[in-house]
Simulated scan of single mutants.
Amino acid sequence: MTKSSEFTPSQLDRSATFYVAGHRGLVGSAIWRNLEAEGFTNLVGRTSSELDLKDRDEVFAFFADTKPRYVVLAAAKVGGILANSTYPVDFLSDNLRIQVNVLDAALRYGVERLLFLGSSCIYPKFAEQPIREDSLLTGHLEPTNDAYAIAKIAGIMQIQAVRRQYGLPWISAMPTNLYGPGDNFSPEGSHVLPALIRRYDEAARSGASTVTNWGTGSPRREFLHVDDMAAACLHLLEHYDGPGQINVGTGTDITIKELAAIVADAVGYDGQMVWDTTKPDGTPQKLLDVSELAKAGWTAQIGLREGVLRTVEWYRANVDRVRS
């Protein structure tokens, strides 16, 4: 492949083939919904049973057949502290294979515009807050999810390498903690917010007098509704082009204890909150600097209390079929 000419971001062709890798997941499904709402008419997605992204031959055959013009790589093996710390080999190996296969196939078959989605866990555990994009690779990672983080850093590096070698306008976006419809609410595999929603909803239904949460409740976290993330992805594809990863978040954070109180209020639980300090807290604070995102013309629209309430309502309406 020869090196491409200079690129200027512009509105994407709504009739072009657009592949959303991971379209059934939390982020991918939100991106799919947003693209449909924005008038895209040729969206392509495959479930993991239809297309194993860890299988290189399958991935290349899929790209040869569909020849997408645009791609969002939202497929990944994801999980919370427990899952990441218990299965680091899986999180490293599976994500590396998914990324390399999709990105190599996209390069082979001439994908014009591609967005790779990572995670804010790529940044050092003790990065200066709020975390700027240039904090990448400046310190040690959080040990409980370093394997996943290394895989995502490798994805960022591959995007940058493609840009340098081939001049393609591919980009990377690093979202903060995401939540919303379609999340994983399982006790073992979920992130903190869906885990709290399930825990407090079950306590409210059972009339439990106490709810026990992990850690001290003191770590500070930033949360972005997945529908906001989906809107940001399309905005970046149409308005942003840069070699480094760009942070996507709200620019504000709260403590886990404050978050638990918001969740308790949303589900109608008025019992006692207990904290198991023998369990890990993880990174003390993780707040993204979103000034580059603001320069690109996008800011989050869904407030945390509103977003949590929406998510609780979705969870209760789908409790029999959510990932649990």
Rank of each mutant, 00 (worst) to 15 (best):
Y315P: 02
S190W: 01
Q272N: 12
V59C: 01
R305W: 10
E292Y: 09
E306K: 14
D55N: 15
V211A: 10
H225A: 04
D104H: 13
A147W: 03
R198E: 08
S4E: 15
E292R: 13
S85V: 05
N34E: 14
C121F: 07
T8M: 10
W170V: 02
T250Y: 00
A83G: 12
V322P: 10
L193T: 09
N247C: 09
E306V: 12
I171Q: 06
T41Q: 11
T283N: 02
G25N: 06
S5N: 15
S49T: 14
T138S: 08
R69D: 12
E188R: 13
L73Q: 11
I150K: 05
N177M: 07
V72R: 00
R321D: 14
G303T: 09
L304R: 06
Q158P: 07
L196G: 07
R310K: 14
M229S: 02
A232D: 00
A83N: 10
G22I: 10
G307T: 12
T283V: 08
G215W: 05
P124Q: 03
V72D: 01
D90Y: 10
S120D: 08
E292C: 10
I302N: 05
A317I: 08
K279H: 10
R56T: 10
K67M: 12
N84M: 09
T176L: 04
A173D: 04
P219G: 08
R97K: 15
R321H: 15
P187T: 05
K54Y: 08
F18T: 04
Y269R: 05
S4G: 13
P194D: 06
N101F: 00
V100M: 13
E202F: 03
L178P: 00
G268V: 09
A76E: 11
V111E: 03
P175T: 08
A203M: 02
S15D: 12
L304E: 04
L136W: 03
R33I: 03
F40N: 02
D57T: 13
P124D: 04
A64P: 01
A106K: 03
T41E: 12
V312F: 08
L309F: 10
A300M: 04
R69S: 13
A296G: 03
L51Y: 00
T283A: 14
E142S: 07
P130Y: 02
V162H: 01
N95T: 12
L137K: 14
A147G: 02
V111T: 08
Y87T: 14
F116S: 00
D228Y: 01
G22F: 07
L234C: 06
G207H: 06
C121I: 09
V211C: 09
A151F: 11
I262E: 11
Y179K: 04
V290N: 07
L12G: 05
N101L: 07
I254K: 05
Q245N: 14
G80A: 06
H191I: 12
A173V: 13
V71S: 01
D270M: 09
R198G: 06
D52C: 05
K279Q: 15
T250F: 02
P194I: 07
